[in-house]
Computed example of a mutant assay.
Amino acid sequence: MLELKPIVFTEYIQAPIEKVWNTFVNENGWDPWFTDGMKMELKEGGKISFRWVRLTNGEIVTDSGYTVYLVQNKLWEFWWYEYEDGFRSRATMKFQRDDNKGTWITITDHTLVKNLNELEIRYGCAYGWGQMMVYAKTYIEKGLIII
């Protein structure tokens, strides 16, 4: 495996932490604003199933994962991006309330790549997280679904 620093994304969302948390961590996952049929078990060790159609030009793309840690309104850590040896990506989402009744969310992604030829996997994850944060912010703050 290549030793790479994690990719970190931070976004401010003008909404109470409970609303932001419930948008990201709920039984239906990131439907309807980012995924198409995502499901998650809301417990440590709980299974996660990802499904995309709209973002993949009509092709059904699925993946799986599981929750490592879950602390209400504070932290959700999970493994996902399944491959032959396990999972490629460990993601941590941290939620922090601020004095203006908004929420800071930080996503830290540790994507495992075996060699330089696999760097595109890491870049694809980075692109996806950035895209997902824009969609979430738009959905939470404006009530708009932009996919």
Score class of each variant (00 low, 15 high):
Thr67Met: 06
Tyr123Pro: 07
Gln96Cys: 13
Ile140Asn: 07
Gln72Asp: 15
Gly124Thr: 08
Glu59Pro: 00
Lys114Trp: 08
Asn57Phe: 01
Thr62Pro: 06
Met93Val: 13
Leu116Tyr: 05
Ile147Trp: 05
Gln131Ile: 04
Gly130Phe: 01
Met133Arg: 00
Lys114Asn: 14
Tyr12Asn: 09
Asn100His: 15
Glu18Asp: 13
Phe34Asp: 00
Lys137His: 03
Leu112Pro: 00
Ile146Pro: 07
Asn26Thr: 11
Gln72Arg: 15
Leu144Met: 15
Leu116Lys: 13
Met93Glu: 11
Glu118Trp: 03
Lys74Gln: 12
Phe34Val: 07
Trp30Gln: 10
Leu70Trp: 03
Lys142Asp: 10
Phe78Asn: 06
Arg88Gln: 01
Gln14Asn: 14
Leu112Met: 09
Val113Arg: 07
Phe24Trp: 11
Tyr81Lys: 13
Pro16Val: 03
Gly86Val: 08
Glu44Asn: 02
Thr35Val: 03
Met133Pro: 10
Ile145Lys: 01
Ile105Tyr: 04
Met1Lys: 14
Leu55Asp: 05
Lys137Ala: 00
Arg88Ser: 11
Met93Leu: 15
Thr23Tyr: 01
Val61His: 03
Tyr123Met: 12
Pro32Ser: 02
Arg54Tyr: 09
Leu112Lys: 10
Ile140Gly: 04
Tyr69His: 15
Glu3Ala: 15
Tyr81Ser: 10
Thr35His: 01
Ile107Gln: 09
Gly86Gln: 05
Trp80Met: 07
Gly102Ala: 00
Val134Ser: 04
Glu118Tyr: 08
Leu70Asn: 00
Tyr127Asn: 04
Gly128His: 06
Leu116Asn: 10
Asp63Trp: 01
